[in-house]
Design a protein around this nucleic acid. Structure first.
Lengths: 246, 246
DNA sequence: AGCGGTAAGATTGTATATTAGTATGCAGGT
DNA sequence: ACCTGCATACTAATATACAATCTTACCGCT
């Protein structure tokens, strides 16, 4: 759990450690390609690597002490997610945040989560679901009061996931995460803990409407919640215009 | 357009031509990886290569006259779509059709297309959309009468795509195709042209409801249409149990 | 000084070599 | 006849080598 333990002799020169220390600690488990992929993905989402930042196969492979192949395969996966822009014979950069990409992501997430809500209100037995939602609400109350941002957003995820899981559609959640990805990049860029009370309130309304089987209310509450970020984008674009590509 | 024209000297032995002639003719355009990917994808969807059929990097690379790298990269893309199962140090097979995968695909497509319908009925100006839908309906009428299966299903695609395009969400369509993929595999396995009149009728109802801005009717009609295949799966599973993995 | 062309360097794309894990078949034993 | 252990063949994973293309910077010319 200790960060920055880099006394493993992988022969990384000190003058090219810009990204490497960050990566090293994340590299554990599965195949090389998987490890490299997970590491780069996390760094992109957390903005440890910034949009438009260059990312070369050969440099990363040296820093990570692996060959180009796993790095390249990780790059290809990330490109297919729209997170990297690979230009043949020129280079690879972290994709800038595109408005079109965001809109697409927003549409798909909304389509999924509203469909899940529609199922949730129609559950014959929703006691388990409501218990799970209530649990997350309690957690979020505490995390919000303690201003524990990370824990709050963790429970935020769990809240939304619980709806899918208790509808018998747990397999859908990874797909939601997939389409959410581009929104999450924005979220990390603009996330401010002053938002947590608002979010918590919205979650409460959603949970209440679902458990009361009030479909229209649940859908409305979820829609408001999911569209919350929309008006924050322009702020983010003003604050970090270099990240965007309009 | 002529199938099985194999007089190009790529050194493929006659006793291993099971897949090669089929592939060769498809290989044109873009990068090697893209070409190989497109070719294999088409063959999987059309059931030219059958579920559970083995597919080795080295054999394909020889047959296609390319190195293993593009083949491998194409494999990885197809694996991420759930169309190939790559087992390290053992081999790669075309993924059998899994009920869970189908249900997931069904859910996501329905979520997308119903969300698109909701937008479609709310368009201020739907004349272009209705014109496009009507055009495809006319085409489908002809194709159905002439029993031209392929053209019918082509127009079927165009019908659905038109809704997305005229809602200003053309970018969404590739994503719909993505999630539809697993359903399409079933569709090819069970497709019978006796279905075309039914489908055409369903399309007519959908188009009419959308153009009349009758949301509930449009949603109902689309839902019926999208769930049409559901009860056909069990038939397909009976007919080709070796393709399935329940 | 400004412009143009060329060569060097850097990049991804492709090909091949090496490594390591898995199945398989045969030999030898029980 | 059946099990066990080893050798072998085959696979994908990884590493390295080569090719093609683009950028960049420098040098010479005008």
């Amino acid at each position: 759990m200790t960060d920055y333990a880099d006394n493993d002799g992988t022969g990384v020169r000190a003058d090219q450690m810009n990204v490497s220390e960050n990566l090293k600690q994340r590299i554990v488990g599965q195949s090389m390609t998987d490890r490299v992929y997970d590491a780069i993905l996390a760094m992109i989402l957390k903005l440890d690597i910034k949009p438009r930042e260059k990312l070369s196969e050969i440099q990363l492979s040296k820093e990570l002490g692996v060959s180009r192949t796993p790095v390249r395969e990780a790059f290809l996966r990330l490109e297919s997610l729209g997170l990297l822009d690979i230009v043949p014979q020129r280079g690879t950069i972290v994709a800038p945040m595109r408005d079109a990409e965001f809109r697409k992501s927003q549409f798909m997430r909304e389509a999924f989560e509203l469909a899940l809500v529609r199922r949730a209100v129609e559950l014959e037995d929703n006691t388990e679901l409501c218990k799970a939602l209530d649990r997350e609400l309690k957690l979020q109350t505490v995390h919000s009061e303690l201003a524990d941002e990370n824990s709050f957003f963790e429970s935020d995820e769990a809240f939304h996931e619980a709806i899918a899981v208790h509808c018998g559609l747990a397999e859908i959640w990874p797909e939601v995460q997939r389409v959410k990805m581009h929104m999450d990049r924005f979220r990390y860029a603009i996330r401010s803990q002053r938002e947590t009370p608002t979010i918590l309130d919205q979650h409460r309304r959603i949970a209440e409407a679902i458990c009361n089987r009030n479909e229209s209310e649940a859908l409305a509450a979820m829609t408001v919640h999911l569209r919350r970020a929309n008006h924050l984008i322009s702020d983010a674009a003003k604050e970090h215009p270099e990240f965007f590509d309009i």
